[in-house]
Design a protein around this nucleic acid. Structure first.
Lengths: 333, 333
DNA sequence: AGATTTGTGCAAACCGATTTGCATGGTCGG
DNA sequence: CCGACCATGCAAATCGGTTTGCACAAATCT
């Protein structure tokens, strides 16, 4: 008997399958003595309930997915999925302690494989407006929560990234550091973090009565595209003395552009990015960035998703506010 | 009808469940016309076979696990699971393209959650001798392959890390850089990489007719423990002029120890580590390390595991040789 | 023509759990 | 003493697929 089943165990214990099931689930009272005997026997013969059978009956698989909608060109490269994987690490632990397994859906080409996975729900990392991933899950009736709000979808619970506040914080920091003309470089996709960042930038400039210099880079182009855009930007606006580039891959490109134009960072150009991954830390000079508390966000997202799965129409929780990590690139460390 | 089942589809198509099943699996020939009709109808009503039901019948879940047996104290910290997560990122993609999902079992306390997961097999990252994880899977009859051989277990297929060759390469590099008395710091667990490294070190010293200076640090103590051990080591052997510290967390500790003893790296003490993660890159000075080609290893491991699951008693494949990444800490960059 | 093979499809058993409805015996209050 | 109630446990239905054995017709072989 390689894998004892519930029937085997029931026979051995001299009770019915029902009783064994209840002994484990506790959904109905069973005599303590009987219960003890069953559990002991179970340990003895190494009985483990078959998850597939449980799933089939209950409709719960005990599996949640973590998915990224970032294109591969951004996710790849030196920091190799840094943002995504940093979240994954914490989310995996958080899931397991809640008796769920976490499976990974990294950015990739062949997405047909996706519906091969049976999952109870999914966490989406920074989806954008009309993100096909969102529809995909939604249409399959799979509960979704996101890290970073989904633009235009108020029905999807999310863990807030506080991108508006982050942008203000960084912009103020750059100005405090002496910058007077700050530009902004975001991406062409309609991610909520871009929208909020642009809104904050706009409000901030308006407030100070200064012109806005904004450029949007195509995510698919990755670091190289950003470098080109940045080179053009710096040519067109030689008086720019600071740049906020939230996407770390773009910030790498911006750093290169600055270097090739002989604009010293931070002396003649101050730089700041958002995600404080190895790209920011290893840049030359190291980039001022923002600690988003990704581990805390990941835990919140897992809890939120589980609530949503349980039908408690999860209320988007309060997430921790980001914290500035000043480094040489803004000239203040 | 929220989720159409195979019965629904069969009724709609005017055929039996059997025919529908065969139309999709192709395990038996069905009339091309019938087949087309079924598939079209399936797309129309959004039919997806229920994975739990399939799993229950076939015994295959389409899920593989990636597990680490590193204690949390090592895995945590600045590089937050770097080694493990770097493998995870590639393995996830490799799995998905082979129609398997990858779920994560990071190092954690409560390991009871582990048997909550239904999986076809597991990849173990650098297990050690008598690793409880190995037995765990093995006893459950779950196929296992490892990245880095399992000491004392020739029955478990593995992807080789070439630790012997790596050690020779690093030791030679340190000596080429001018070091004459090179020490080695490994860990107390019996990981295969330690065993091979120590063997290479031993052979190398013997070859040159010089004494061996080896210290093993308790993994559970993490970076701090390594710092203390290293401090003691440098006191006892003031003539040491180089140190190979394969575990990156320990290398961080060694760097700190050197600093507090005012031993300049690399001038009076050359350092090298193995895993080229952010710990090595961000150290001051940056540490000479080794590119293990983790992405290639991860792919190989996934393939090997799938072969093993399919009962082809996977032959441990040839894995790429590691490559040295010289940095300031060895005084050669 | 009769026997054999091939193509096509169906009914029913099966995978291993959960859950519902019912049966039994014993205790208790009135 | 009887009905109500509780504690305990069982048989059977169910979840949604896959697989086996068989049936029937048409084609091919002897």
């Amino acid at each position: 008997m390689s894998k004892p089943t519930i029937s085997d165990l029931a026979r051995l214990a001299g009770v019915s399958k029902t009783t064994v099931s209840h002994a484990f689930s506790g959904r109905r009272h069973v005599d303590p003595e009987t219960c003890r005997k069953i559990k002991e026997l179970a340990r003895e013969v190494g009985y483990r309930p078959n998850r597939s059978a449980q799933s089939l009956r209950t409709g719960r698989t005990g599996m949640i997915a973590l998915a990224s909608s970032m294109p591969f060109s951004i996710a790849a490269g030196p920091s190799r999925l840094g943002f995504f994987m940093e979240i994954a690490a914490t989310a995996a632990v958080a899931s397991l302690t809640r008796n769920q397994a976490l499976c990974l859906i990294p950015p990739m080409e062949a997405d047909g494989a996706l519906d091969a996975i049976a999952m109870d729900g999914a966490i989406l990392v920074e989806p954008y407006a009309n993100d096909p991933m969102v529809d995909r899950f939604f249409n399959s009736g799979i509960p979704v929560v996101s890290i970073g709000r989904v633009p235009g979808r108020d029905d999807i619970p999310f863990v807030d990234l506080h991108s508006y506040a982050t942008a203000l914080m960084v912009l103020n920091h750059l100005r405090d550091a002496g910058a007077s003309k700050v530009g902004l470089m975001t991406g062409t996709q309609r991610r909520n973090s871009y929208l909020e960042t642009e809104a904050a930038y706009s409000a901030s400039c308006e407030n100070l009565g200064i012109p806005q210099i904004l450029v949007r880079v195509d995510e698919a182009g990755g670091e190289d595209e950003a470098e080109q855009c940045c080179t053009a930007l710096l040519r067109d606006h030689p008086d720019l003395d600071a740049l906020y580039v939230p996407v770390d891959a773009f910030a790498s490109g911006a750093t290169k552009a600055a270097k090739s134009l002989h604009r010293n960072v931070p002396e003649t150009l101050r730089l700041a990015t958002r995600y404080d991954g190895s790209r920011a830390k290893l840049a030359d000079p190291p980039l001022t960035a923002v600690d988003l508390h990704l581990d805390a966000l990941a835990k919140l997202a897992v809890d939120l998703l589980i609530q949503t799965i349980d039908g408690q129409k999860g209320e988007s929780p309060n997430s921790p506010m980001p914290r500035l990590v000043p480094r040489q690139s803004s000239g203040t460390s």
